[in-house]
Design a protein around this nucleic acid. Structure first.
Lengths: 168, 168
DNA sequence: TATAACTTTCAGAAATTATTGAAAATTGTA
DNA sequence: TACAATTTTCAATAATTTCTGAAAGTTATA
C-alpha cells in the first residue's frame, strides 16, 4: 500500500467514524486530512484533496474550529488562511469528551430537571413513574459528574490513573 | 406537571438523545416508553401511545431487542407479543457500551489494521505520515482495551471503583 | 478609494434516512 | 387443514441532512 493509498484509506475510515461522534462525514474527513498533514492546509487545498465544494470546505473547517479540534493560522505576508489540527490524540480525546458534554449532556440534564412531577396522584402507576424518572435523573447526573471530573484531571494524571486502575 | 405530561416530556427528551448513541429518534422514544412502563406493552399499545405506524413500531422494537435493551415476552394464552425494557440504569449503560464497542469500535480497529504502509518511501512526509497513522492505531487500540476491561468488570465492582477513583 | 484576493452565506439540488401502510408471511387454535 | 390473529416486509413517499456554486461580503494592500 503506497503512502497516498494509506492516507486515502485513513481519511475514509475517519469519515465513516464521524457519525459516531455526531459530525458529518465530510467534516470528519477534513479533520482526518488535517490530522495526517504536517503542514497547514488552505481551503483551496482541502477542496482539491477531498473533491468538495468551497462552501462545504469552509463550513467544515469552521465547525472543526468550533469543536476546538482545528486552529486557524495566518502565514506572514499571505492573505490566505491556513488550518492545522491538534495532533496529540490524548488531547483530541479530552476535547471531544468536553465538547460532547457541553453540547449533549448538559442540555439533557437541563431538560430532565424541567420535569417536575406533582405528587398528588398516589396511584401505584404514578408512584412508579415518579420513581423511574427520578432514577433516570440521578443516573445521568452521576455519569455527568464522573465525566466532568475525568475531563478536569490533566492528562499527566488521567491516563496513568486509568491504566493503574485496570492493572488489578 | 401531571404524570402523563411528565411521561411525554421524558419520552421526547430520550428521543432527542437517541442520535447521541446512534439510534433513530423513534427507536429511542419506544425505548423510553418501555422504560417508564411497569407493564409489558404490545405493538398495538406502542403504536397508539407514540402515534407511529405498525411497520415503524415493529422495526423499532426489533432493533431494541438486537441492542439487548428490550426483551420479548409471551403471555400465557395470548398470541400477542409483549415487550419489556431492562430497568436498571447501570445495566443499561453497560449494555450500550458493549453494543457500541461491537458495532463501532471493533470494525474501526479492523479497518485501521488493514492499513499496511510500505516502508520504501523515506521522504520526510512519508515518514511522518506513517508515524501519524501508527499513533492513531495505538491510541484507538488503547481506548478499546480500556473499554473492554471496564465492560468485563461486573457492576458491583465497576461503579464503586469509578467513584473511589474520583474521590481523591 | 479601488482592486483583487479571499471568505462567507444561502437558496436550491442531491443524497440519505426514516416512515407509512398495505400485502405477504407466519403462527396458534380449532 | 382452514382460519383468524398477529408479525414482518418492502416499495413508495416524506422528512431531514448535506452539498453545491454563484453571489455577496470582507479585508489587505497599493
Amino acid at each position: 500500500m503506497t503512502n497516498s493509498e494509506a492516507k486515502e484509506k485513513l481519511i475514509s475510515i475517519w469519515g465513516s467514524l464521524g457519525s459516531t461522534w455526531g459530525i458529518s462525514s465530510t467534516m470528519a474527513r477534513v479533520h482526518a486530512l488535517l490530522l495526517v498533514s504536517d503542514d497547514p492546509k488552505s481551503t483551496e487545498e482541502i477542496m482539491e484533496e477531498l473533491s468538495i465544494s468551497r462552501g462545504n470546505a469552509n463550513m467544515s473547517v469552521r465547525s472543526l474550529i468550533e469543536w476546538n479540534l482545528v486552529k486557524k493560522l495566518v502565514k506572514k505576508g499571505e492573505r490566505k488562511e491556513y488550518f492545522v489540527a491538534e495532533k496529540d490524540f490524548h488531547k483530541i480525546a479530552v476535547t471531544i469528551a468536553k465538547e460532547r458534554r457541553r453540547r449533549e449532556i448538559s442540555p439533557l440534564i437541563e431538560a430532565l430537571n424541567e420535569i417536575k412531577i406533582d405528587e398528588h396522584d398516589c396511584s401505584p402507576e404514578a408512584i412508579s413513574l415518579r420513581k423511574r424518572i427520578a432514577e433516570m435523573q440521578v443516573f445521568i447526573k452521576e455519569g455527568d459528574n464522573l465525566l466532568e471530573k475525568l475531563i478536569k484531571l490533566d492528562e499527566s494524571k488521567l491516563f496513568p490513573l486509568l491504566f493503574k486502575m485496570l492493572k488489578r
